[in-house]
């Protein structure tokens, strides 16, 4: 089923507590080389047919207006997968 993938990350200058907790856990497991971990969201929007240009425009719209909050997050990628 064709999907539009929307990827969202917390803004670079904001503390990402999930990423920080995972980084600490990885360091405890001995992965001392890892400098940082950041965790975002991947949202899959499933469609019956391959998305049109209009569908992609619509996805961009909902990505900015609803799926992300521009005060705290950035939409980093929107792409299509089969």
């Amino acid at each position: 089923m064709p999907k539009i993938i929307v990827e969202i990350m917390p803004k670079a200058d904001l503390l990402d507590p999930q990423g920080k907790a995972v980084l600490n856990a990885l360091h405890r497991q001995g992965y001392g080389k890892i400098q940082n971990v950041r965790i975002g969201k991947r949202i899959e929007i499933h469609l019956n047919d391959a998305p049109s240009a209009e569908d992609l425009e619509g996805a961009r719209e909902i990505a900015d207006s609803f799926l992300s909050n521009g005060v705290i997050e950035d939409v980093v990628n929107i792409h299509v997968e089969d």
């Binding site: 917390p10 503390l15 507590p17 920080k20 907790a21 909050n69 005060v71 705290i72």
Partner: peptide
């Protein structure tokens, strides 16, 4: 989130 007030709320600093 409804934009009646500005800004945002994120996870507490100390988690």
């Amino acid at each position: 989130e409804s934009h009646l007030l500005p800004g945002g709320l994120i996870r507490n600093e100390n988690q």
